[in-house]
Computed example of a mutant assay.
Amino acid sequence: MDHVLGRAALLPAANDNVRTPNDDRMLRAALHHFAAHGLGAAEAARENAETAFFAGDREQYRWWLGICRMLDRRMADAVRVRREAAQ
């Protein structure tokens, strides 16, 4: 079979769905956040992350950035890059 599909076809999937309890907690929180804010949920999470960052609350910053990442990875990556540059 590997001569037809190539060796990569026989390797395990990169997304092996290994989840941690914290992933599930954040996923539930992201879904609730989306239900409350609709299509503006990622933007609201970004604003919450930035507010926490400037207040010096790194734990809340990471939490809201994780929520933002679940909803819009590019937005979260842009926030992270800007914050790292500001430090």
Rank of each mutant, 00 (worst) to 15 (best):
V81C: 04
R73T: 08
R58N: 06
D2G: 08
R25P: 00
W63D: 03
D23R: 08
E47A: 12
H3I: 03
L27S: 12
I67K: 00
M26F: 13
M1H: 06
W64F: 15
D16K: 12
L71W: 04
A8G: 13
D77N: 14
H3R: 07
A30S: 15
Q87S: 08
A44M: 13
R73W: 02
V81Q: 11
T51H: 11
L27G: 05
L27M: 15
A76R: 05
V4K: 08
D57F: 07
G56R: 06
M75D: 13
R28G: 12
M26L: 12
R7C: 10
R46D: 01
A45Y: 02
R69S: 12
W63H: 08
L27P: 00
F54S: 05
A9T: 05
A76D: 02
P12V: 15
R7L: 15
R28W: 09
R73E: 09
F54K: 10
A29V: 02
E50K: 06
E43C: 06
P21N: 06
H37D: 12
D24Y: 11
A78D: 15
F34I: 00
A76K: 07
M26H: 08
E47S: 06
L11K: 14
L39H: 11
L11D: 09
E43I: 06
A45F: 03
N15W: 03
R58D: 04
I67V: 11
R83K: 12
A49Y: 00
F34T: 03
A9S: 14
N17I: 05
L27Q: 14
D77M: 09
P21I: 09
F53I: 01
D16N: 08
V81W: 03
C68Q: 04
I67Y: 05
F53V: 00
N22P: 00
Q87G: 14
T20S: 15
H32Y: 10
A44G: 01
M75L: 15
L39D: 11
N48I: 03
A49V: 00
A36V: 14
D57I: 07
V18H: 07
M75V: 14
G6E: 09
T20F: 11
D72M: 07
L31W: 11
N15L: 06
D2V: 10
R74T: 10
L10Q: 11
A8D: 15
R74K: 06
T51I: 05
V18T: 12
N15T: 08
L5R: 11
G38C: 04
M70P: 00
L27N: 13
P21Q: 12
D72H: 04
W63T: 01
V18E: 09
D57K: 11
G38K: 13
M75Y: 05
G56F: 02
Q60M: 02
G56C: 01
L11V: 08
V18P: 00
R73F: 01
D72P: 02
R80L: 08
L27T: 09
L31C: 09
L5F: 03
L11T: 05
A41C: 10
T51L: 07
L71K: 02
A13I: 10
A30T: 06
R73S: 04
Q87E: 15
E43H: 06
M26K: 10
A30R: 03
M26S: 01
A78N: 10
A36K: 08
W64V: 03
M70E: 05
L10D: 13
P12Q: 07
R7F: 13
W64D: 04
R82D: 03
A35T: 12
E47N: 06
R82I: 01
R19E: 09
